[in-house]
Simulated scan of single mutants.
Amino acid sequence: MQLSLNLINTQRNLLAFSAGVDSSALFFILLENNIPFDLAIVDYNYRKQSKEEVAYAKELALKYDKKIYIKESSFEKLSNFEKKARDIRYKFFDEIINDHSYEALITAHQLNDKLEWFLMQFTKGAGLNELLSFEEVSKRKNYKIFKPLVNISRETLLNYLNKNKIKYFIDESNNNEIFKRNYFRRNFSNRLLKEFETGIKNSLIYLNEDLKSLEKKEVLLYNKEELEIFENSKDDNLNIRIIDKSLKKRGLLLSKKQREEIIKEKELVVSHKIAISIEKEFIYICPYLTNLTLTKEFKELCRINKIPKKCRAYIYRFELLDSILKKIK
């Protein structure tokens, strides 16, 4: 499972629990990985089964020495149920976190939820920010929210529960298409993920990376002859976009394998033609030259100023070192 547990860097965590497939799986995944947490569950008194779910939550809390916070609520009408339920739920979480000094909330949103949200927003008319709001880490008021399962499908979680013989409940209201999310789940997202899970998961990950990168801008520091020096954005995705754009202008298209190799190796030659070097502060891109004898003095200046080795011959050939140093010093 492609979990994001390494992002959870807090010690006082609250798990939003419902006793359903997602939160039951997450409960035991957190236990297995020694991540500390307590439980919070809301009973909306909408289904008879909710009493059994709360009882199960209490049972787990007692067995595994977890604190548990329970909220009783009720609705007279189903209109706008999902929004009302969410408002009640997060108000409850806010109160617990403030009163008991928790640092973070952990929720069990998973890949199906992420795709359902995407489709719902897409059909309403939305921009990238609205379409891609399921972040693995986000901030709310004075605490963090972690969603470590957002790249894991519900089917994968079900398999985990069944394999480990872990008890969970199925919310019968998930079949009621009066709720818009259920309509998208039953008619679209479940079917799409069943056939195209890997592609959908990767696309949503790439779109999120692109969105983050779009918020940043490339900074070209130097451009002379065919040498370009950019500021290192400290973002692999944006750095690859910068390199890709530069190479396209030079008539070269990067393959997926080449992109991955550039990020891994940091300095290499593409297609025996273009030298690329991702340094701590800068990105160098220029034609790759060989069969040039560099002076000892020039090599020493390059070493001192951390000029990448594969670019040195080109810089030497066109006498660019002095003008480069004026720009990057």
Results as ranks from 00 to 15, higher is better:
residue 3 L to C: 10
residue 6 N to D: 13
residue 8 I to F: 14
residue 10 T to Q: 00
residue 13 N to E: 11
residue 14 L to A: 01
residue 17 F to D: 04
residue 17 F to A: 04
residue 25 A to G: 05
residue 27 F to V: 01
residue 27 F to A: 00
residue 31 L to R: 09
residue 33 N to Y: 05
residue 37 F to H: 01
residue 38 D to Q: 03
residue 41 I to L: 00
residue 47 R to L: 10
residue 48 K to H: 12
residue 50 S to C: 03
residue 50 S to D: 07
residue 54 V to H: 02
residue 55 A to Y: 09
residue 59 E to L: 05
residue 60 L to E: 06
residue 61 A to E: 04
residue 68 I to K: 08
residue 71 K to L: 10
residue 71 K to W: 04
residue 73 S to F: 06
residue 74 S to L: 03
residue 81 F to T: 01
residue 81 F to W: 03
residue 83 K to C: 07
residue 90 Y to C: 00
residue 96 I to Y: 03
residue 97 I to Q: 00
residue 109 H to E: 08
residue 110 Q to S: 06
residue 112 N to V: 02
residue 114 K to L: 08
residue 116 E to G: 12
residue 116 E to A: 12
residue 122 F to A: 13
residue 122 F to P: 13
residue 122 F to S: 15
residue 127 G to R: 00
residue 129 N to L: 08
residue 131 L to K: 02
residue 136 E to F: 09
residue 137 V to D: 00
residue 146 F to I: 05
residue 149 L to G: 03
residue 150 V to G: 09
residue 150 V to I: 15
residue 152 I to D: 00
residue 163 K to I: 14
residue 166 I to E: 08
residue 167 K to M: 06
residue 169 F to T: 08
residue 170 I to M: 04
residue 172 E to A: 12
residue 173 S to D: 15
residue 174 N to V: 13
residue 175 N to C: 14
residue 181 R to T: 15
residue 189 S to I: 01
residue 190 N to L: 15
residue 192 L to C: 04
residue 192 L to D: 01
residue 192 L to W: 02
residue 194 K to T: 15
residue 201 K to M: 04
residue 209 E to N: 11
residue 209 E to R: 11
residue 212 K to I: 09
residue 213 S to R: 07
residue 218 E to G: 09
residue 218 E to R: 01
residue 223 N to K: 14
residue 228 E to D: 10
residue 232 N to R: 07
residue 233 S to C: 03
residue 234 K to R: 10
residue 242 I to S: 06
residue 248 K to G: 12
residue 248 K to L: 12
residue 251 G to M: 01
residue 251 G to N: 01
residue 251 G to F: 02
residue 256 K to Y: 12
residue 256 K to N: 13
residue 258 Q to W: 01
residue 259 R to A: 09
residue 260 E to D: 14
residue 261 E to R: 06
residue 268 L to I: 13
residue 271 S to P: 12
residue 273 K to H: 08
residue 281 E to H: 13
residue 283 I to L: 06
residue 285 I to E: 00
residue 286 C to V: 11
residue 287 P to D: 04
residue 293 T to W: 07
residue 295 T to C: 08
residue 296 K to T: 14
residue 298 F to E: 05
residue 300 E to D: 14
residue 303 R to S: 13
residue 314 Y to T: 07
residue 314 Y to F: 12
residue 320 L to M: 06
residue 328 I to E: 04
residue 328 I to G: 08
